[in-house]
Amino acid sequence: MNIPYTVEERPDSGLANGKLGIWLFLASEVMLFGALFSTYIILRTGAPEWPHGELNIWLGMINTFILIASSVTMVMAWAELKLHNWARHRLFLILTFVLAGVFLVNKYFEYSSHFAKGEGPWHSTFLAIYFTLTGLHGLHIVGGMVVMAYLLGPGAILFKRNPEQFVNRIEYTGLYWHFVDLVWIFLFPVLYLL
């Protein structure tokens, strides 16, 4: 039995199932990160002093540029698919995947330099919330990479069977990816600059 409204829009909402589903998922993600941001506010306002300059601003800025670039390549992967340019779609999706990988490599160097100095999450309140927020964000990056790897690999077969459904999947992946970028846009100033 086929699941209805995977491609065609529902008559009541005007949306396909996946579109409404991904937005509701993103709404729950807003609350997840929101809870951690409010934790940050409590910890920071309650602390007698808050450390400055503990993180490498330039590495954080490079990672911001990388995620912004990956958002552009992700939306381009969707646009090229809509324009029926399969090869360019693949190129942009691979670029997004690679940029996500570079982000994680940078994060690895950043984390390892902290651990080398004995500055783990146990070291201070600031580092505890820093590792929690960036660690959770990093897990989201890994999750996005797994989905992209699937769409580049075995999941790509769907394009031959049901191209519209595949385009929708790329769009939903893009929505998730832009959300991950959006979270970092707020994490960067909050943790690295303020």
Partner: peptide, 24 residues
């Protein structure tokens, strides 16, 4: 429907952010 879901999310997000503000 998307706007509706997001407006609801924003309202709850504001409550989430306000609670610690009032607390401290």
């Amino acid at each position: 429907w998307i706007y509706g879901a997001l407006i609801l999310t924003v309202l709850f997000f504001i409550v989430l952010m306000s609670v610690p503000m009032f607390t401290v």
